[in-house]
Amino acid sequence: MNDQKLKIEVCVGTSCHLMGSNLIIEYLERLSEKVKAQLDIKYISCMNNCSQGPQVKVGDCQLANATPELLNDRIERILLQ
């Protein structure tokens, strides 16, 4: 089942947390249940790219300096494909 879902990985390491990964998480938590059901959300302790946080991986694509807006665009684009 998880294979069909869109994999989202959010780095919650020190730098990414300070750069706003909690805002990303807040955004993900606020998504509708219908959208959430299509996502496989995971937190990662460190993605080893600390100077460009928050780091978020959507599918195979890693986003640097991620924001809720950027992530929303990406998720929307993939899910509506």
């Binding site: 919650v12 020190t14 990964s21 909690n22 807040e26 938590e29 995971k42 937190y43 302790s45």
Partner: peptide, 12 residues
């Protein structure tokens, strides 16, 4: 990593 963010000022 836990998905529980009980305190937003502390990472999970």
């Amino acid at each position: 990593i836990s998905l529980e963010y009980t305190d937003p000022s502390v990472p999970p």
